[in-house]
């Protein structure tokens, strides 16, 4: 098979490879151009580097990780995000299962969920701080608060949309509600679950950073606020860039998990 690739096929594959290459090349080129122009404009003092900082100084700050305790701040933010993400997702899926199990409960709680969903969770910040104290727990609760309701709604919605005919089929074999849950509803909703993972990792990060803005002695959110207050724009910019990278890595981890999950055919 491999030996008889037609000319047209070769052309086609070449075209695809070329397109892929140019896209990656342009993506990198835009970034490089942006950084170079930024640096030049700052050096020529066309823009005020006190306000905008500049790439070389950001790089310097980044290299002096230890002097700024940057690594510690990164770890704190990562830790809070991961814990918030895990709690928010697990708790959310668990509550969604309970509400699927009892349509009576789900009807009772529906208006509360709807209101809580549209409420901006950041507004709960001060209340959370008073209740659980200013510190890491408050930040984690914030992350959970932001991701929890969405997780419940998304997963419950998926559970309820599970093919009724398939559930009926299981019932004809006298399946129990627990069997319907574990053998049909959950496996049928793996993609819903993965979607909520993707959304939640971003939401948890939002929760953690806004929590760190309000109360914290460490973390990237703290660094950003602190840097802003003392006009250390190098520090602010570096933190923002690291935050971007961190978000990218976490999202990548979820994508990797998705690949592993979808590749494994569960015979459940």
């Amino acid at each position: 098979m491999k030996n008889n690739i037609s000319v047209e096929r070769k052309e086609y594959l070449k075209k695809i490879r070329k397109r892929k290459f140019t896209i990656i090349f342009l993506q990198i080129a835009i970034l490089v151009a942006f950084l170079v122009i930024w640096e030049i404009l700052a050096n020529l003092e066309i823009i005020d580097s006190f306000i905008t900082s500049k790439p070389s100084r950001i790089f310097e700050t980044f290299m002096n990780l230890s002097s700024n305790d940057l690594l510690k701040h990164i770890l704190v933010t990562t830790y809070e995000t991961v814990i918030g993400f895990l709690i928010g997702t697990t708790l959310g899926v668990f509550i969604a299962i309970i509400l699927w199990w009892s349509d009576y409960l789900s009807e009772i709680f529906e208006p509360y969920l709807v209101v809580l969903n549209s409420l901006p969770k950041v507004a709960l910040g001060p209340i959370i701080i008073i209740w659980v104290g200013a510190g890491t727990p408050a930040i984690i609760v914030m992350a959970v608060a932001i991701s929890l309701i969405v997780t419940i709604l998304e997963n419950l919605n998926g559970f309820l949309k599970t093919d009724k005919e398939v559930i009926k089929m299981a019932k004809t074999f006298k399946a129990t509600k627990f069997q319907i849950l574990t053998k049909i509803v959950i496996p049928a909703n793996i993609s819903t679950f993965i979607n909520s993972l993707k959304v939640n990792i971003g939401l948890s990060l939002v929760g953690v950073i806004s929590g760190e803005f309000l109360v914290s002695k460490a973390g990237l959110g703290y660094l950003i606020v602190y840097g802003g207050q003392v006009f250390k724009l190098d520090l602010v910019m570096t933190s923002v860039i690291i935050l971007g990278i961190l978000a990218g890595i976490m999202y990548g981890a979820v994508l990797l998990l998705e690949k592993v999950i979808t590749k494994t055919r569960f015979n459940i």
Partner: peptide, 29 residues
């Protein structure tokens, strides 16, 4: 237990292979 029932659609579980689909009823019981 004595009744078998087939619906309009085949209702096969897409995440199970054919063998595991055919033993689904046995598994439930």
């Amino acid at each position: 237990e004595k009744i078998g029932y087939m619906l309009q659609r085949d209702c096969l579980l897409e995440w199970r292979n054919i063998l595991n689909n055919t033993i689904f009823g046995l598994e439930i019981k």
